[in-house]
Computed example of a mutant assay.
Amino acid sequence: MSAYLFNQENEPDESDSITLYDEAGRPLDCYVENSLEKNDVQYLLLTPVDIPVVIIVWDDNEDDDEGVILLDDEEEISRIFADAKAVLAELDLSLKYTAYTLTVSGELPPIEDEDILTLEIEGKDPDGKAQEEELQLLTSFYHEEEQYNIYTPWERVLFLARVASDTEVELVDPDDDDLKSILEELIEELLFEDDD
């Protein structure tokens, strides 16, 4: 559920924004990047206002990508959150425990080639190839002798939502086969606009 501040009669721009809420009531402010109406349902392509980040640990018993563990357990994130926030503050970045993804506000440090991590992620693209995601290392820290690494995705993080009422939207699963064509159409329109 979310507060819905989008005017359907206008084309979306960066002034159009909504706030998504997760089940715990945490907010995530998003820009409306694009919208599309299909079968009398309004769909929105959203991107977070702040910069999404992920926390990664490595399983010492595995090699390369096999050993990468994306931290998504809320209890563990809460346990290390203060340390992560403190180390990011040293980079003038403010860590926020937002809905669906952790985010930071502030200016990212310059990109160094050695700070880029390329991961193969589950699932395949339409050509049958494994998908890759590039992440930029922001910083590392230790908590109880375990090393944690904070990365930000190289590409924009996008969410697909559907308008549920005049005042609410709901996040939809982008892996839903019925919605893949809608997501692809929204992304194609967005990319086309970026090329103009």
Rank of each mutant, 00 (worst) to 15 (best):
S2P: 03
L5V: 03
L5A: 08
F6G: 01
Q8V: 07
E9R: 14
S15T: 15
D16N: 05
S17W: 11
I18E: 04
E23P: 06
L28G: 04
V32Y: 11
E33R: 15
V41C: 11
Y43P: 03
Y43E: 05
V49R: 14
I51D: 09
V54T: 12
I55L: 14
I56D: 03
V57T: 15
W58F: 15
D60A: 13
D64R: 12
V68R: 00
I69S: 05
E75W: 07
I77M: 07
S78Q: 14
F81N: 05
A82N: 13
D83T: 09
L88D: 01
E90F: 02
E90N: 07
L91V: 04
D92N: 09
D92Y: 02
S94R: 11
T98F: 08
T101I: 09
L102T: 05
S105G: 08
L108C: 02
P109R: 00
P110L: 10
D115E: 06
I116R: 12
L117Y: 13
L119I: 02
L119D: 00
E120M: 06
I121L: 14
K124V: 10
D127Q: 13
K129D: 15
Q131C: 10
E133Q: 14
E133Y: 03
E134P: 04
L135G: 01
L137R: 13
Y142H: 13
Y148P: 02
N149I: 02
T152I: 00
V157C: 10
V157K: 13
L158D: 07
T167F: 04
E170V: 11
L171A: 08
D173M: 06
P174N: 08
D175K: 08
L179I: 03
K180E: 13
S181C: 05
L183P: 04
E185N: 15
L186F: 06
L186W: 03
I187R: 07
F192E: 14
D194G: 01
D196H: 04
